[in-house]
Design a protein around this nucleic acid. Structure first.
Lengths: 212, 212, 212, 212
DNA sequence: TATGAATGAGGTTTCATTCAT
DNA sequence: CATGAATGAAACCTCATTCAT
């Protein structure tokens, strides 16, 4: 549970909660998070300002994190292509699949993740620990992948390597997926698919190259 | 010239300008950029709010970008170790030097770059084009480095590879250098030096591994 | 009956009423009346906000007056020392007994009387006429006392004198008993017992001194 | 200086301050202090809400205390009948003069003193210590008066007696002068002049009657 | 040119009160 | 009857910006 949100037991409560987070989703598609006021969100949601404060103690940020959590869970629930880390396909391919998975997640609702990512940096104190679990799960996937290809990987410290790869994937994709329109955007960078492929190749090259 | 700042030719003007940006530097060490009001900055700088508006049309953001530009130039002026991309030392070593250079730049005043980085994402419209030049210069360095080691690099499209490496370096170091205290901070990640080394190894592995 | 309260004949209703006024009593021991919201009182009482409105039309003030009335009645029911205004003890002693009685009443629950006294001044329109009866009864006691000592009293207009004494007693004791911690609190004033004695002596001196 | 108010050095500032406190004076004549909002006061004063916050940190209460202080000073500055505590006129007369002085002070702007008196009890933490000085000065006058009539006064502890008289005068007059329309208002009480006379007689009787 | 008092729009937040369940 | 989620008016307060001095 994101910090600041309350359980919604009654049917009416649940409906209000959903109206609020869906309204925030809609608003984030058209404007910046910090241009949105509680009053405006309330209007879009068709509820009163007071309802937002009752349900999400602390104002808009808890609403954002709740929305974010909702989207993550929604995707987690979908029957999606689990990465098959079998030796059959090879490390390079598996990394590309992983890259595609992260990329797909971010692309599903970049407006939400963008706002959450920025606010998490702007107001680090307000983040709950739902994120911790996400990170752990991401880290564990990469450990599994690395462990599945002992013959290809040449790094000595496998946990450290997994952490580097997880960090690299998340950081680079977030930057490009969420802020492509407002960051340096280095000329010469390949687009979407090529980019994901190259990012996977960074990790691949790193893992298969021996340390000196 | 960043959008919003005015030339300060006169001596008195220059002094006011310096008082203002140095005051912002001091405030950024102790609090978030968006917790700083024009009045507060004016007090810290020992000038009036009106003076800030006279010198930096547009409020605080132009002051921030001016401060940022000032810090970048200050560092550029320093007689610092230019990377010697001679074949003698090898690609891997040169990449490590480049990593150290980026890392050093960020570490010199993280509070300034952090604020600038966030505001650039929050208010993309307010950024001038001073950044463009920075990016170009960074991109060109990596092109030079890659061009200096034709025997080691196995990538086909060298410009694209240079863009990927530049993007990778900047993104990953910014994330870790500026937001270490407020981001996932993946457990298992090596610290400072080890991290910079591994980041360089990502680029190295990428460049020397043939595409399939 | 204080304006705004409803008869609570049924057993369940009576229980709700008691829960509410006892909750208010508890809250008044720890915070100011106007810092207490309906919702807070409802929580403390273990009932819903709606129940407070059902039982006490008009919100919190009727609850306060009901509580006050309850405390006054509770004390009136107690088998307490009735003042024996017999000539045997003398006017001065009887006045001291009267002073002690008023003082004792106020001291029994100053937090309740303090809130009621302030709200009566803040919202004079909301007071019922229960008070009228109290005043009359107080006034009558002093008339009786004065009438019992025709030889000592030198005032011409005995009703006026009784009104002055009643006014004096009530005013001075309320000020000192309820607001000692937040009023001028004149340095040099005697404490509790000495104060009550001196107040009685004011009345005594007034009554036995001839007009000019 | 009342807590929460700022010095007003500039001419413009002084004008704003005066507009604000005079507006509060006008509003207090027609409605309760706590029915007045900052916005309403700003409108009445012809200034912006922001100006009130700038000049009186803490909102309306500091404005009230400043107004009160202003009225007290204004009266203190007036060339008024100083009480001549010479033995020539006698203790009884001097006490009546003192009563008339207190009564006159309160009557000069009861709406202001009423609000201040209530708020001082409602928010004791917000009062500055300007009051302390007033009390001291009042206390000292009564000490002087008592000292001037050693032959008439029969009390043993003269400081205690002075404190009692000061307390008595202030308390009783405040109650009757400021809240006559909303307090018990005991039937049978004499009006204005008679009341002030009788109050003085309480003190007189007290002082000249020997303790037992 | 620098000042800083004043502005006032607009955000945040509370809470008495209602009414569907 | 009791409940308590929802309401929404209205208060509070801030702060970027202006402009008379």
């Amino acid at each position: 549970m994101s910090k600041g949100s309350k359980p919604a037991v009654q049917k009416r409560s649940r409906k209000t909660r959903d109206q609020i987070i869906e309204a925030l989703d809609r608003l984030l598609r058209i404007k910046e998070f910090d241009q949105i006021s509680v009053t405006e969100l309330a209007e879009e949601a068709g509820v009163s300002p007071g309802s937002i404060y009752r349900r999400f103690e602390g104002g808009l940020i808890p609403v954002l994190f709740e929305l974010c959590r909702d989207r993550i869970e929604r995707r987690a629930d979908e029957p999606q292509a689990q990465i098959d880390a079998s030796a059959a396909v090879g490390l390079r391919v598996v990394l590309r699949l992983a890259a595609a998975a992260v990329w797909g997640q971010l692309s599903s609702c970049p407006h939400v993740y963008r706002a959450a990512h920025l606010q998490a940096r702007l107001r680090p104190d307000l983040i709950g620990d739902a994120w911790k679990a996400l990170e752990d799960s991401s880290l564990q996937s990469f450990r599994d992948i690395i462990a599945a290809f002992p013959d290809e990987v040449r790094r000595r410290d496998l946990d450290r390597a997994a952490a580097m790869v997880a960090y690299h994937f998340n950081t680079v994709f977030i930057e490009r997926g969420l802020f492509a329109d407002r960051s340096p955007n280095w000329r010469g960078l390949p687009d979407s698919d090529g980019f994901a492929r190259d990012v996977a190749d960074f990790a691949y090259g790193f893992l298969i190259t021996a340390e000196d």
